[in-house]
């Protein structure tokens, strides 16, 4: 029980302090889960993190479930997942209940016009980083382009991109074997 409670508290802190994508979670995880609690090693954390990026779902939630499961079984996984989403849910509810009331005022429209541009810039930068680390060969370029075309030009569901990658992954496995 103490174990489960500790998992909840640790991931509550991580969820409250991380912003944006799962990438911002890594330094927090290192400090809390590896150095402070010594639940898993740094290598194990990197494995969990890599896996979390490749399976469906939000990276932070995946990583929480992975560490929780490893440390405390199903109860541990549940505690870690609930911990990591608790603060974000409360924060969003506060924003939604307060902000929604003056959403359409001219000042808010101007501010959000600017914020929207900033989000576009930050996402563009993130995509550049992602392409650099994830697209390494011709197959990667082809798959990346296919993913872009399927969504941006053909307007199909992202499910098709994932399925395509899985099929190609099986073919690649057949070739390499």
């Amino acid at each position: 029980m103490k174990n489960v409670l500790e998992l909840f508290v640790s991931f509550l802190k991580i969820g409250a302090l991380m912003f944006g994508s799962g990438y911002t979670m890594l330094p927090l995880l290192l400090r809390e889960v590896v150095e402070r609690r010594a639940w898993i090693t740094e290598d194990e954390l990197m494995d969990a993190y890599a896996l979390s990026q490749c399976v469906p779902g939000v990276i932070a939630v995946n990583t929480a479930a992975f560490v929780g499961q490893k440390r405390g079984g199903w109860g541990g996984a549940a505690a870690a997942v609930l911990g990591v989403i608790a603060a974000p849910v409360v924060a969003i509810l506060l924003v939604a209940t307060v902000l929604m009331q003056f959403w359409n005022s001219p000042t808010m429209v101007s501010i959000f016009n600017g914020v929207r541009v900033a989000v576009a810039a930050v996402i563009t930068n993130a995509v550049i980083q992602l392409v650099r680390s994830n697209v390494k060969n011709w197959l990667g370029i082809a798959l990346c382009a296919a993913g872009f075309v399927i969504i941006a030009l053909l307007h199909l569901s992202p499910v098709f991109v994932v399925l395509l990658a899985i099929i190609v992954g099986f073919v690649l496995w057949g070739v390499r074997r």
Partner: peptide, 8 residues
């Protein structure tokens, strides 16, 4: 194969 496709 998942990583580059997801990047796209």
């Amino acid at each position: 194969t998942l990583r580059p496709a997801v990047t796209g």
